[in-house]
């Protein structure tokens, strides 16, 4: 079975042109889904690297709508847009319709099950009615019952974050977390939030169907531009293919 590789980058990072080049070529490096972060007003569950990338593109003054259109045209893999519901709670309908009209298939709202739990079902209905499929994010600090319940609503996979914030190498045990969640859900399970290369095999052996990488990509771009990020993707694809 082919293991899934999800690559995250921030909309318009590190520049409009380089960003478009990244999304148009990532597929060639074995990326199955592109996760594109739309800079929120407060990235509360993100770590320092991703927060830096948001600040960077905010300074560039990128037009979100225009950039999203360009992604949809150029992307080399299906797109999962990522942003915080905090910024769109009151205009969700309009936002989802816009995503759908642009041709973006999936939307991930990391704060949905944490800060909007009581209304999450309505949010899912709104998204579907507008033609956007919800990708749900769960973490180990969620109760078993909820993970079980929401898993069936998530497309194209269930996203499991194994750390409290993106990219901070807190020493968690991915095997324990993946095993616990694997027992609860039948859905395709993608694991992310600060996985190290060494964690990947362990996470997959514990039952994950794939991995999502974000911070490592942003840090690679910071170090050596998108070429460095492509090198990282090649390496990750290689590790996954061997499992």
């Amino acid at each position: 079975m082919k293991r899934i590789l999800v690559a995250y980058t921030t909309l318009g990072y590190p520049s409009k042109e380089r960003f478009l080049e990244f999304v148009s070529k990532a597929g060639k490096f074995g990326v199955d889904y592109l996760e594109i972060g739309i800079p929120p007003s407060f990235a509360k569950y993100d770590g320092p690297a991703i927060r830096r990338s948001y600040e960077h593109v905010k300074k560039l003054g990128i037009d979100t709508r225009e950039a999203l259109r360009a992604v949809a045209k150029n992307a080399s893999a299906p797109i999962i847009a990522l942003t915080y519901l905090d910024d769109y709670a009151t205009v969700l309908n309009r936002f989802a319709e816009e995503l759908s009209s642009i041709g973006i298939e999936y939307l991930l709202l990391p704060d949905l099950l944490i800060d909007y739990l009581d209304s999450y079902k309505e949010v899912l209905e709104t998204l579907r009615a507008c033609g956007v499929k919800p990708t749900l994010f769960v973490s180990s600090s969620m109760p078993d019952r909820l993970i079980e319940e929401v898993s069936k609503h998530s497309e194209p996979f269930l996203y499991l974050g194994i750390r409290p914030a993106t990219g901070i190498p807190i020493p968690v045990d991915p095997v324990v977390v993946v095993r616990r969640v694997r027992k609860l859900v039948d859905n395709t399970l993608v694991v992310g939030f600060g996985l190290s290369i060494d964690d990947i095999a362990n996470a997959v052996n514990a039952g994950a169907d794939g991995i999502a990488v974000g911070t490592a990509i942003i840090e690679a771009i910071e170090r050596g531009g998108i070429e460095e990020a492509f090198k990282l993707l090649t390496k990750l694809r290689g590790v996954l293919n061997e499992l």
């Binding site: 509360k44 800060d115 739990l117 109760p143 909820l146």
Partner: peptide, 11 residues
């Protein structure tokens, strides 16, 4: 076993 998710620590 909590009835709802525990909001994570935040920076």
């Amino acid at each position: 076993d909590l009835p709802k998710p525990l909001p994570p620590p935040m920076d």
